[in-house]
C-alpha cells in the first residue's frame, strides 16, 4: 500500500539562468519575441520554452536539451556588453515529476509553503526535504515538477520513495 502517485526523474531538459535588470530584460524579450513574466510565482509556458520568474531580476529559461547551446548563445549575444548574467545551469539541478491524485500528500511532507495558493502554471522556490527545491505546478493538485541541486539527487530519489509509502 502506498500513495497513488507516480514519481520519475526528468531528463532532456536544459535550464538557463538569467540575471538582469529591466533594460536587459527587454533585449531578451526582443530576441525570444515574448514578454517575460514579471510578478512572483508566474511563468510563461510555450511550446519551445518556459520562462520562470524566480525573483525580480532572476529567471529560468527551460527548453529541450537539444536546444541548450543555441538558446544559450542567443540569450548571451542579446546582452553582450551589458551587465547581465547568462549561465547554463542544466547540470546544477536534477528534475523530478510527481503526478497523481496524492501528489500533494507527497509534496506536503517536504514543502512547508502554502501549496493551496499555487495554481496551474505557477512556480516558486522554497525549502524542501532539507535541501530546497524549485517547484513548477503543471496541474494544481495533480501534477508537479521540482528541481533540486544535483548533488542531492540520490537523496531526493530515496526521499520521494519513502514519502510515497514505499520501502527500500
Amino acid at each position: 500500500m502506498s500513495y497513488q502517485v507516480e514519481v520519475s526523474s526528468l531528463a532532456h531538459y536544459a535550464l538557463i539562468n538569467l540575471r538582469g535588470e529591466t533594460q536587459v530584460t527587454t533585449n531578451w524579450e526582443a530576441v525570444l519575441d515574448v514578454t517575460f513574466p514579471k510578478s512572483a510565482h508566474t511563468a510563461l509556458i510555450s511550446r519551445a520554452f518556459s520562462i520562470l520568474s524566480l525573483a525580480s531580476d532572476h529567471w529560468w529559461v527551460r527548453t529541450a536539451l537539444k536546444n541548450e547551446d543555441e538558446l544559450f548563445h542567443r540569450l548571451s549575444e542579446a546582452v553582450s556588453g551589458e551587465h547581465a548574467a547568462v549561465t547554463v545551469v542544466t547540470d546544477h539541478f536534477q528534475g523530478f515529476s510527481i503526478k497523481g491524485p496524492d501528489a500533494v500528500a507527497v509534496l506536503r511532507q517536504g514543502f512547508s509553503l502554502d501549496l493551496r495558493r499555487l495554481e496551474s502554471g505557477q512556480c516558486t522556490r522554497g525549502g524542501f526535504a532539507r535541501c530546497g527545491a524549485t517547484l513548477q505546478v503543471v496541474e494544481s493538485g495533480r501534477a508537479y515538477e521540482l528541481f533540486v541541486e544535483a548533488s542531492y539527487s540520490e537523496y531526493v530519489e530515496r526521499w520521494l520513495k519513502m514519502a510515497q509509502g514505499h520501502t527500500f
Binding site: T87, T90, D91, H92, S151
Partner: peptide, 12 residues
C-alpha cells in the same frame, strides 16, 4: 557594485 553571483558548484 554591479556583480552577479551564480552558484554552479554541482554543474561542474
Amino acid at each position: 557594485l554591479n556583480v552577479y553571483l551564480v552558484n554552479v558548484s554541482a554543474a561542474w
